[in-house]
Simulated scan of single mutants.
Amino acid sequence: MSQLFTPFTLRDLTLKNRTVVAPMCQYTARHGFINDWHFAHLARFGIGGFGLVFVEATAVSPEGRISYADAGLWSDEQIEPYRRIVDFLHSQGAAAGIQLAHAGRKASTPVPFRPNPTDAEKVATAYEDWQPIAPSAIIHSDRMPGFKVPREMTLDDIRRFKQSYIQSVHRAEKAGFDTIEIHAAHGYLLNQFLSPLANKRQDDYGGSLDNRMRLLLELTEDVRAAWPSGKPLFVRISASDNHPEGWSVEDSAVLAGKLKALGVDAIDVSSGGFDGAAFNPKALYQLPLSRQVREQAGIPTAAVGLITTAEEGEAIVASGDADLVALARQALDDPNWPLHAHHTLDKGEKPYADWPLQAGYAVRNKDRSLKERAFSVA
């Protein structure tokens, strides 16, 4: 059998394969409440055979949303819609994860596909606007529209952020999630504290590398204590700012080692998130970052970033560059990617067993009639 379709265990959770749906913001919530769109969006990945499905970046407080249309988990009333999604994913043999987040200075920004809402659209979509908070009062970008100058966080703000985060962790447990991912990537709040590009503080949370890591490490320790010991904990990082004055992959290896010591089970390795970084996105462009973090910190990683083919996914796992393969845009393009990839990598009839009962027999009959896949003529 291919390596991509072997089980993988973290603590008491065993994933049926190494394929993961990375968190993808849908910008379709109202006042933080998810709805039928989110259910349909995520349910199809369970039907499609993914081993682990992450819910999008979910704000731990109202001001932590990237936009007014982001999902949230700051209220007990928000739990039930997530439980519905978790239960369905479990019914399809998939594990369910949630990425808990705070956008920091990148909060209160426009929805990408609705940059200038009309008055009628504002009413229909529960539009809101607020001043973001951040490590330092520095705007994310002067050249890109939609960003605001944030208010620098006080020590009380930091304390309240950690409290709201832990409350959201407890709600995630009540919703039945199998794992949590701490979002410390893509230029959002925790990443802002890590990076010297955004963190100009003069107190214990700024300056040296140890000080800039302090908030994430404190939060991680609190989350690990609040989250059930048998359930794994992920952290997503931007392994490099790709900026001469920014965070480096060497910094990430140090951070990953400290996170491992605090009980983190896997690092989801992404990159970037700050204005002025010079990236050249192409197939597998972030894979070297995953490899370096995995080798130097000795911790499992998930690789992500323009992974599109079954052969690429198999090579990533088989070579030891990462333990898990996470898809986002490719999963949007093909929600059945694992089902198709299994047929590509493992010939014969066994991959048909991955399909849901309601569909597998029909797909098999179609392939037999057309002499495709297991029935192709050599």
Rank of each mutant, 00 (worst) to 15 (best):
I34R: 11
N35P: 09
N35A: 14
D36Q: 15
H41R: 08
H41T: 02
F45P: 08
G46S: 08
I47V: 15
I47D: 10
I47P: 00
G49I: 04
G51D: 08
F54Y: 15
V55H: 10
V55S: 07
E56C: 12
E56N: 12
A57T: 13
A59S: 14
V60H: 01
P62Y: 13
E63F: 07
R65V: 07
R65D: 05
R65C: 13
S67M: 04
Y68S: 10
Y68G: 04
Y68K: 06
A69V: 06
A71L: 03
G72S: 09
G72V: 09
L73C: 12
W74N: 06
W74E: 04
S75A: 15
D76M: 00
E80G: 03
Y82H: 15
Y82P: 08
R83H: 14
R83Y: 14
R84C: 03
V86R: 09
D87S: 15
F88M: 06
L89Y: 13
L89W: 13
L89T: 08
H90A: 10
H90W: 13
H90S: 08
S91F: 04
G93T: 00
G93L: 02
A95H: 14
A96G: 09
G97C: 03
G97A: 01
G97Y: 02
Q99P: 06
A103K: 04
G104N: 05
G104W: 05
K106A: 12
A107N: 03
A107M: 02
A107I: 02
A107D: 03
S108R: 07
P110N: 02
P110S: 03
V111E: 00
P112V: 12
P112N: 08
P112C: 09
P112A: 09
P112T: 10
P112D: 05
F113I: 10
N116D: 14
P117T: 00
T118W: 09
A120D: 15
E121G: 02
K122L: 00
T125R: 11
T125I: 05
A126L: 02
A126C: 15
